[in-house]
Amino acid sequence: MAGERRKIDLDAWTPPELDAEPKDVLTVKKYAERWYTETKGRHKPRTRQLNRGYLDNVILPELGSVPLESLTVQDVRRWYASLDHYPTRNANAFSLLRTIFNQAVDDELVPANPCRVKRAAVKTRVIEPVALTAAEIRQLADSMPAQWRALVLVAGFGGLRWGELTALRRSDFTLTESDCSVTVARAAVRMKGHFVVGPPKSKAAMRTVPLPSALRPILVAHIAEHAAPGRGGLMFPADTADLLHDNTVRPRFKRGAAALGHPKLRFHDLRHSAATLFAQAGATLADHMVLMGHTSSAMSARYTHSTAARNRSLVEGIWE
Rank of each mutant, 00 (worst) to 15 (best):
G158S: 04
D11L: 08
V76I: 09
R149N: 04
P45H: 13
A214G: 01
G230R: 08
V315G: 03
E21V: 12
P199E: 06
M292Q: 13
M206D: 05
D19P: 07
T72P: 07
T88D: 10
S181C: 02
R310D: 12
A205R: 00
L160G: 02
A286D: 14
R250S: 07
L168N: 06
A227W: 01
L260K: 03
A228I: 05
D75Q: 00
V110T: 02
P22V: 14
H288Q: 09
A134I: 14
A309Q: 09
F267C: 05
D172L: 03
K192N: 08
A258T: 03
D287C: 05
T307R: 14
R312G: 09
V25Q: 15
L291C: 07
G317A: 15
D11W: 07
E316L: 13
K40R: 14
I59R: 03
W35T: 06
R52Y: 10
P229W: 08
L83Y: 07
R310M: 10
A2Q: 15
V73E: 15
F267R: 08
A221M: 00
G163D: 10
R169E: 15
V152M: 11
L260D: 08
V249R: 01
L96M: 05
R34C: 10
P210G: 00
I59L: 15
V73W: 01
V130W: 11
S300N: 11
K118F: 01
N311M: 13
K44C: 08
R255D: 09
L219Y: 04
N57K: 14
R250I: 05
S95Q: 12
N311Q: 15
D246W: 05
A221I: 00
V290A: 14
R302V: 08
S95R: 14
H294A: 10
T39R: 12
V315Y: 06
S300T: 03
L175R: 05
I8S: 02
A286L: 13
A283P: 13
P114S: 06
T284W: 10
A155H: 07
S213I: 04
D242P: 02
R186D: 00
T37D: 10
T99M: 09
D19H: 10
A146I: 01
D239T: 04
H222K: 02
I218A: 01
Y86D: 11
T37Q: 08
P22W: 15
H305L: 15
A2C: 11
G193C: 00
V290Q: 15
A121L: 09
